[in-house]
Amino acid sequence: MENEARKYVNLFAFIVILALFWPYLSELRPGLFKKHVEITPYKVEEKPEVVDGIEIESGLIYAEGYLLVKQQCTSCHSLELVTQNRATRAGWKENIRWMQETQGLWDLGTLEGPILDYLSKNYGPKEASRRANLKNIEWYEL
């Protein structure tokens, strides 16, 4: 009976330790629990701060679907990698496939459609030019 009791104490201790360290575990090794834990480094704000159409915390264009991008893309890379790029829907999809095939991105499931909608609508192709005009010049006295 003593052995039997020890068994339960062991199991109980294990569960307690697991419970205590679970948040650290999932944060430290997102890859380890990728399939079970949805990584959301940003809290869902009820009223996000938006200036000139940009959601301040993420730097993303504030439009339908921005939160999905904010949540899904930031566990590996910064959102600057999103906002500095431009592509068609097919181009963004290709990008996602590349990340899935080579960089360890998970299957986005039903979120993929809305994410592609957001990206292609807000970060669609730029105007073609063999050489653009020089822009954003800060004038000064030489």
Binding site: L25, E27, R29, S58, T74
Partner: peptide, 23 residues
């Protein structure tokens, strides 16, 4: 294993999060 890899895991992740705020 986690404490070994934590030098590149949690710290940089947190650092990045705060940087994203000043995107």
């Amino acid at each position: 294993g986690n404490s070994i890899s934590s030098n590149t895991g949690i710290k940089s992740q947190k650092k990045t999060t705060s940087n994203n705020k000043t995107a």
